[in-house]
Design a binder for these strands. Structure first.
Lengths: 153, 153
DNA sequence: GATAGATCCATAAGGATGTGATATAAATGT
DNA sequence: ACATTTATATCACATCCTTATGGATCTATC
């Protein structure tokens, strides 16, 4: 007996939609109160992972509007975490690049989060820990798949 | 040769800390632009899942300050999604209860997110889909474990 | 049983960060 | 050349968070 693929996806989507609600609180609790916003961290991570990006692209990837990204990049630039660069092929576009200081900040931030997460993870069963370890690449794939989905642009 | 449990947890924590950065963007993209904030949805979900809660407890679970939760509950109450109730045993505390309209709103919200998620999930390999399905209970356990962690209170 | 301290919630003031509308500059197509 | 589209910036405004503080109620100790 084979499980219907379509129904399974819908079921998974519903479960995941409900489950992800809880992750927001977790993320907020993991963040230091006085630091970068969640969007700022996500954007820095994108720049580190994918390299230089244009501003509009970053806005779409972060799920915010273009004006919001313009302001975010300005703030990050003031903190010397990113650099605006001109695009030689198109005078309108702004290419955004992460700086070494940006990378260092991101690393520090991750280390802090990881330390807090590690404390919590030790309370979980080995099965749940294993499930999370397996899910990390899947979450990455999920985020990557969204990039190519015009519905969510 | 046995893998050190402690090292494995640290490694998982680091991977998960980096991986969760991407989820923020995904969550934002899944949200309708004009609706409830991410904190509001997470709080409503807590109330639905755990039942009536005191205001301070909600703030701790959501990872925000108590004044922020007071304001959020006021907004939700204005929209008739929650109700403030007096605690018969302690005159200081405010018990917050989700209303039927709150449940309905949460359900609508989840349905919208699930529909968008389903589109993305179909692009993932069966292995990744399976990994995510297995991870949902683990994510719940992770969020539940945080509750008992005073370090993050 | 009075009173000091702790706890819970509300309020106020301010800041960070989002949106929508619109301006400006550059590229593109006719 | 000129109209249209595209990329970014700017402006006005709304949302939602923070810190600081106040008032009400509970708890413990004298």
């Amino acid at each position: 007996m084979e499980i219907s693929g379509e129904a399974a996806v819908d079921r998974l989507a519903a479960d995941l939609a409900a489950g992800l609600e809880r992750v927001v609180s977790l993320l907020r609790a993991l963040s230091q109160p006085s630091g970068l916003s969640m969007t700022a961290v996500a954007t820095l991570a994108t720049l580190e992972r994918e390299g230089t990006q244009r501003l509009t692209g970053l806005a779409a990837l972060a799920g915010v509007t273009q004006p919001a990204m313009t302001q975010l990049i300005s703030r990050l630039e003031d903190d010397a975490l990113v650099r605006r660069e001109a695009d030689p092929a198109d005078g309108r576009v702004v290419q955004v690049r992460i700086t070494d200081e940006g990378r260092a900040t991101l690393a520090r931030r991750r280390a802090g989060r990881a330390a807090k997460l590690a404390v919590i993870l030790t309370q979980l069963s080995p099965e749940h820990q294993a499930a999370l370890a397996t899910a990390v690449p899947a979450l990455d794939a999920l985020a990557a798949a969204r990039r190519d989905e015009p519905v969510l642009a």
